[in-house]
């Protein structure tokens, strides 16, 4: 069975989600629950750290798609950082770098939250 878990941290007013394991159609609901929890608690600046994320399928990508518009409407964003190349390549195959702010490091992503760039990663801009 796939193992997947999410742990939470906070830095500079940004809620950081550390993803561990394999994100597939079985485990995607765990990520969905984590993002819903952040949103319910009023966190709109969400940084997803993928350093320990070993695998992602379209079900996992779909969770980001499902919430990013709502969070941007509230003035926040979901930014993604530290992806392993095999995981980044799946984002890239679907053209996600156009839709999402995907940073090489967590530090880069935190710095991006400081920038006044409301259209960052927005395909319509």
């Amino acid at each position: 069975m796939s193992t997947f878990s999410v742990s939470f941290r906070d830095a500079n007013g940004v809620r950081i989600l550390d993803l561990h394991g394999e994100l597939d159609a079985h485990t995607a609901s765990d990520l969905e629950g984590a993002i819903q929890q952040c949103h319910a608690e009023g966190s709109i600046n969400i940084l997803v750290n993928g350093e320990d994320l070993e695998y992602i399928s379209s079900a996992g990508l779909g969770v980001f798609m499902a919430y990013v518009e709502e969070i941007r409407d509230d003035g926040g964003d979901i930014k993604i950082a530290d992806l392993q190349s095999k995981v980044y390549n799946v984002f890239d195959l679907l053209g996600f770098p156009v839709l999402f702010d995907i940073c090489e490091t967590e530090e880069d992503a935190l710095a991006r939250f400081e920038e006044p760039a409301p259209d960052a990663g927005n395909a319509s801009s």
Binding site: M65, G95, L99
Partner: peptide, 11 residues
């Protein structure tokens, strides 16, 4: 349609 994907909650 990638440009419109985020407009749908369940693409």
């Amino acid at each position: 349609d990638l440009a419109r994907l985020t407009e749908r909650r369940r693409p």
